[in-house]
């Protein structure tokens, strides 16, 4: 028993020290004010469209977005014919048909975004064992979501001398533990913007973050608008009830 307490004591004293040395260090990402931040924040549709372009041309080669369908793209400000034009660039595997065969057909707006790999195993195998996460909810699934993803995409640095990186690993300031399997995905001039926005990594990262935020929370604008109506109604109702309550209680006070 004494030994146990001695051991416990040792654990209690040493644990904080071990905690610091244990790695998994996280750096808080710098805070941005986004177009969608705040009570009245809305999505900047031009940014969403640019972000979608970045996703399509860069991220989509490794990352799936299984929760999204092409029909959702009307939210980005595309009309139906534009969505059809985008859809026209894809074919999807369907079936089995009446003969039991799988077949390729042109994609329809109701189809999900196609995934770059057959399954998770294939995706991990093609990426040196690291599974590229699905991006549908990436913003909601991370602390400080938008700020974190933006910081991560722009946070690649040369590894410090004491860092031990294996083949296929990279050093990123904002990745917990700093070691990340994803190679720096963005470089200046990589995606050609048509609206004259700067072709920089920072701009790409910012646009794709806005697109991914929408992807995880497509009803944000409706939610905030509804919330405003609900809360104003409740406040007025509460005010009226306060008056009623005072009136009723006036004879007992």
């Amino acid at each position: 028993m004494m030994m146990r307490f001695a051991l416990l004591f040792a654990v209690l004293v040493l644990m904080p020290v071990a905690g610091f040395a244990g790695g998994g260090e996280t750096v808080k990402p710098p805070h941005h004010h986004w177009h969608f931040s705040g009570v009245n924040g809305t999505y900047d549709k031009a940014a969403l469209q640019r972000g979608y372009k970045v996703y399509r041309e860069v991220c989509a080669s490794c990352h799936s977005m299984k929760q999204l369908s092409f029909r959702n793209l009307t939210d980005l400000g595309y009309d139906e014919s534009q969505v059809k034009a985008i859809v026209g660039e894809y074919t999807v595997m369907d079936g089995p048909n009446d003969e039991g065969e799988m077949f390729e057909r042109p994609a329809r707006p109701s189809d999900q975004f196609p995934s770059p790999f057959e399954n998770d195993k294939a995706a991990a195998y093609a990426n040196g064992g690291a599974l590229p996460p699905d991006l549908s909810l990436i913003i909601k699934a991370r602390h400080h979501g938008p700020d974190y993803v933006h910081a991560l995409l722009t946070g690649y640095k040369d590894a410090p001398h004491d860092a031990h990186l294996l083949e296929g690993q990279h050093w990123n300031k904002y990745m917990p533990g700093h070691v990340i399997a994803m190679a720096p995905p963005l470089s200046d001039g990589q995606v050609a913007y048509e609206d004259g926005s700067p072709d920089t990594v920072d701009q790409y990262a910012s646009d794709v973050v806005q697109f991914l935020t929408w992807a995880g929370d497509p009803y944000m604008e409706t939610r905030k608008r509804t919330g405003m109506k609900v809360i104003i109604f409740l406040l007025v109702f509460a005010g009226v009830m306060y008056g009623v309550k005072r009136k009723i209680w006036s004879d007992v006070h």
């Binding site: 409740l234 009830m241 306060y242 309550k245 209680w249």
Partner: peptide
């Protein structure tokens, strides 16, 4: 009435 106000 008091409960309704508090609830709101």
């Amino acid at each position: 009435m008091k409960d309704t106000f508090g609830l709101l």
